[in-house]
């Protein structure tokens, strides 16, 4: 009789605890999910259509310090020997020979002139990054739909879906992509997609001490990038490829490829 009573009471206690537990979970989840301050403001796909991100590089202001390269590496955890943005140096000597170099992507700037024996008649830096082309070759060749255009005109890689075949790396005429061998997937400049939608600038834009870089919404007629594009004369990298890049260059020399 007593054992029967014990069993009943323990069953009752179990049900009691189970009920409390379930109630607690309900209250807890409501508190966690229902708190509006914890939920970040995420734009819907329709909201994204209000943007068309573009990038502007003023090569006449670039001093080749490599701040952008360092900031990009740290911001995006880019593995060693790969770059999402890098700075190229063009040196034209008195014999009109063109020397192009970018030692370690200009991660530690440039240590000396690369043309030492001849007189350099013209020299300049050209920072490079993904052009976020409207008709991008890289997204067209992706066999699994892992490379794509966002509704706001940024070319991204879905790393969960990418099979690492490397077609896009070969297709990009600007050499902006690489295979991250640690993850076995393609990777590239995201225009700091995680920053621009939080109201921040891409890390390289913030890091540039000379304001040689600018990003902005091309669909906004009041944006600074539109104002600068209306004021300055600009050109594109490899316009004959028909990729329709959205990275505009001010003061680009004819020799730049």
């Amino acid at each position: 009789m007593s054992s029967e009573a014990e069993r009943t009471s323990s069953r009752r206690r179990f049900l009691q605890y189970a009920l409390y537990g379930a109630g607690g979970l309900c209250v807890g989840s409501v508190t966690v999910l229902g708190n509006p301050e914890d939920v970040p403001q995420v734009p819907s796909i329709e909201d994204l259509h209000a943007f068309e991100w573009g990038f502007l590089v003023d090569t006449t202001r670039c001093i080749g310090c490599g701040s952008c390269v360092r900031a990009c590496k740290l911001e995006n955890h880019v593995p060693e020997t790969y770059f999402r943005t890098w700075v190229e140096r063009y040196e034209i000597d008195e014999d009109e020979t063109i020397t192009v170099d970018s030692p370690d992507g200009a991660l530690e700037s440039f240590k000396a002139n690369s043309v030492q024996t001849k007189k350099v008649v013209k020299a300049f830096f050209v920072p490079k990054l993904c052009n976020h082309c409207v008709n991008s070759a890289c997204t067209q060749v992706c066999p699994v739909g892992a490379s794509y255009h966002t509704p706001d005109g940024v070319v991204l890689v879905d790393q969960d879906h990418c099979v690492g075949c490397g077609y896009c790396v070969q297709a990009c005429p600007y050499g902006s992509r690489y295979i991250d061998h640690e993850k076995g997937v393609a990777d590239k400049c995201t225009l700091c997609y995680h920053r621009i939608h939080k109201g921040l600038s891409p890390a390289c834009v913030d890091a540039c001490p000379r304001e040689a870089r600018l990003h902005g919404n091309l669909k906004d007629p009041k944006s600074r990038i539109r104002a600068v594009l209306h004021e300055r004369r600009y050109s594109l990298l490899k316009p004959d490829m028909g990729t329709n890049p959205k990275c505009y260059y001010i003061g680009l020399d004819m020799e730049v490829k």
Binding site: P40, I45, A146, Y148, P151, T190, D206
Partner: peptide
């Protein structure tokens, strides 16, 4: 087929938000 694939284009819609949700490293 992954969830949300093809909802807005030939890609996974959730991927846009995954990349957007990364924490900024540089604080300004």
């Amino acid at each position: 087929k992954p969830a949300s694939f093809g909802e807005v284009g030939h890609y996974r819609k959730d991927s846009v938000y995954e990349i957007m949700s990364h924490e900024p490293v540089h604080q300004g």
